[in-house]
Nucleic acid binder design. Structure first.
Lengths: 123, 123, 123, 123
DNA sequence: GTGGTCTAGACCACC
DNA sequence: GTGGTCTAGACCACA
């Protein structure tokens, strides 16, 4: 994984993990990789990964069993969806819509860009 | 103007100025308020405003006439639009579309949220 | 005349006047345009032109006859040449030579660029 | 390092750093000294050094790794050379050649001055 | 009056 | 430890 420069790395890792949950790669109750494992594979300081795990634990998305590891919480999928959706609707969308107005991008054009994005993703 | 806590103040000022240009409040060739003027009206340190101006000058959106002040560049409107549109299409939209996929938000639902936003804005 | 943004306008005017003297456009003893005249033709504040004239007067290149105007001094051409040449040899050239070394630009290449410059000037 | 009075300190630091890159003292991918470190060694305010670093980052010559430090970019040497060479050919040389013409300094004389400079540098 | 630079010092997020 | 931002205040050159 490559990291952007704008956002904190630990938050980029959080996003990466949320994606894994939402996409079904990690199921509820399943054990997720150890902090050190992730740290090695992402070439990141373990402290940074720890911070991501702590964040997700605080949100009730994962939980820790001492000495064993971290697991996706029982309602981890729902919690993740709520967290992401709330952020999406309350923070992201309003800014997107405002930009559209200022740039004169209509909804039709947005649809076009969406189709382009989908096409690229399917390649 | 009130400032959010996520983004640097000087960047929020940059956005504020881009909005003024895109909305037509400031026209090309027009002089914009002096650094100290803005600093007083926004209750911010002049250095912070200077940073915003330097950023916009670097982008070719405004230019400086020694001892007189800052002006919207000849192609300032176009430059602003390009800057904002590029950021919108390359950085914002892909993340939005990805979120939509992961959250199962369809384009119809997006349209609905867009209409809600428009309705609010018109009140 | 267009002004660069790096150098003070009054110094750019000084250069412009020195050029006129060195190129023989203005001869020793000859009257030069009034401050207001220059100010209008260059679209500049008269104070700025005044500053240029004061600078040249201090260097002994021009002199003032009250109520009549400014004139090129008796040894104005020599004085200008000395001023420019001293600046050229002591300030400009060392930096040029240092840049050449760092950039790996040899004297042959410099000669080539010089010929290119000459060719362009003759068009 | 001693600072001239003509040019802003932060730009003199930029030059100093470009020199280090061009001369091979700092290689691509290598970490460069921390802002505070440079600030202490040059007896300058950290803000001033930061400004130099920000400038070089904007030019793609160095990049930042969060919480770790600044590094010479992958193509840092090329970028530096381009930046410097462009400035040299487009801004410096034309003025030099123009001065030569106005002062009646021929290319032979220039060569002589160049040799003198080289001799001094080798002592 | 205008902007441009610099210092000193503080606070913060992040690794 | 690293950089990033902001404030306060000073000084300067310039128009």
């Amino acid at each position: 994984m490559e990291f952007g420069t704008n956002q904190a790395i630990y938050l980029q890792i959080v996003d990466y993990m949320c994606d894994n949950i939402l996409s079904g790669k990690w199921s509820e109750g399943e054990r997720i990789p150890a902090i050190r494992e992730i740290a090695v594979s992402l070439e990141v300081n373990p402290n940074t990964v720890m911070r991501s795990y702590a964040y997700l634990q605080e949100k009730g998305i994962i939980y820790n069993q001492r000495g064993i590891g971290y697991f996706i919480a029982e309602k981890g999928l729902t919690a993740t969806r709520q967290l992401k959706r709330s952020d999406f609707v309350k923070n992201i969308l309003p800014r997107v819509f405002k930009s559209m107005d200022l740039l004169g991008v209509g909804f039709d054009e947005l649809h076009q860009l969406y189709n382009q994005y989908q096409a690229k993703g399917n390649l």
